[in-house]
């Protein structure tokens, strides 16, 4: 049970004088033990008075955290970007190492009990072969064209991510040290988005610049994605539409011919 702050204060005072007496008497071993006790008491006092102190327990499972970050971005994203977005806008820790097995676990869960969860985290599909794209995560509830990546998609999705992050920053008024590196990461590589210095990462300018460049690519990108999605709906079963077709399976389906 917890000690009250008052009794802790008394105990701390008593321990302080005990340490002083032990040192004066030359008994270093006893002094060391008493100092350890003193420090523990001081820690308990701080926790009792100031609250917190313990590392905050992670409240959400990894898949929820990833879901939040991905929902913010709205497009297929690599684990590194997911972690960066999470660190900038959400609390708790998300270690990128925990993302590696995620996709496989999700697929296994889906196969053993299909549609038993409200959403699944899956790999994006490549537009040419409808195979799982390496290192890109999506949410199963997104429309199929969004979950497919074509040749223009890496750039288009990068720009869309930039727009979503800038909008989120403006909407929530978030700022400061956590968000700035993320904004800069986008701004540095979009023409007209960057100021002279990383500290100038301005979400408004980023939004304008990214929107302008996206305008250039979006037509071709959406068209390719839409065509691939049509093909996927015709050719793939439920599981493959979420987790991608493996080449072996596709080749079998086409009588051994390569797609």
């Amino acid at each position: 049970m917890r000690e009250s702050p008052e009794s802790l204060e008394q105990r701390i005072a008593g321990l302080r004088s005990a340490v002083r007496r032990a040192l004066a008497g030359g008994d270093r071993t006893a002094a060391r033990a008493l100092r350890a006790e003193l420090r523990a008491a001081e820690d308990s006092w701080e926790r009792a008075v100031l609250g917190g102190g313990d590392p905050k327990p992670v409240l959400l499972p990894v898949r929820e955290q990833v879901h939040h970050a991905l929902s913010l971005l709205g497009v297929p994203a690599a684990p590194k970007l997911i972690v960066a977005v999470h660190d900038a806008f959400f609390s708790g820790e998300l270690a990128s190492s925990r993302l590696t097995s995620l996709r496989r676990d999700e697929e296994r869960s889906f196969r053993s009990a299909p549609y038993s969860r409200p959403y699944y985290l899956c790999a994006a599909l490549t537009a040419d072969l409808l195979a799982p794209a390496r290192g890109l995560l999506v949410i199963s509830t997104w429309p199929l064209p969004t979950r497919i990546v074509g040749p223009y998609s890496p750039r288009a999705d990068f720009l869309t991510s930039a727009i979503r992050v800038a909008e989120h920053t403006l909407r929530t008024g978030a700022g400061g040290d956590a968000v700035r590196p993320l904004l800069w990461r986008f701004a540095a590589n979009i023409p007209g988005a960057a100021g002279d210095h990383p500290h100038d990462a301005d979400p408004r300018r980023l939004l304008t610049a990214a929107t302008a460049e996206l305008e250039v690519h979006t037509g071709k990108d959406t068209e390719q994605r839409r065509q691939a999605a049509d093909r996927a709906r015709r050719q793939l079963g439920d599981v493959e539409q979420l987790f991608g077709a493996r080449l072996a399976a596709a080749a079998r389906a086409q009588n051994g011919r390569l797609p």
């Binding site: 490549t126 040749p151 890496p154 750039r155 288009a156 590589n189 023409p191 071709k220």
Partner: peptide
């Protein structure tokens, strides 16, 4: 290569004048 080859595209645009619409990547 991260973020859809973002750094590489910036470099190619600045150094070689790669036109903005050309961003398609084939892996």
């Amino acid at each position: 290569k991260d973020d859809g080859f973002a750094e590489l595209f910036t470099l190619l645009r600045e150094r070689l004048g790669l036109p903005v619409p050309q961003v398609a990547i084939e892996s």
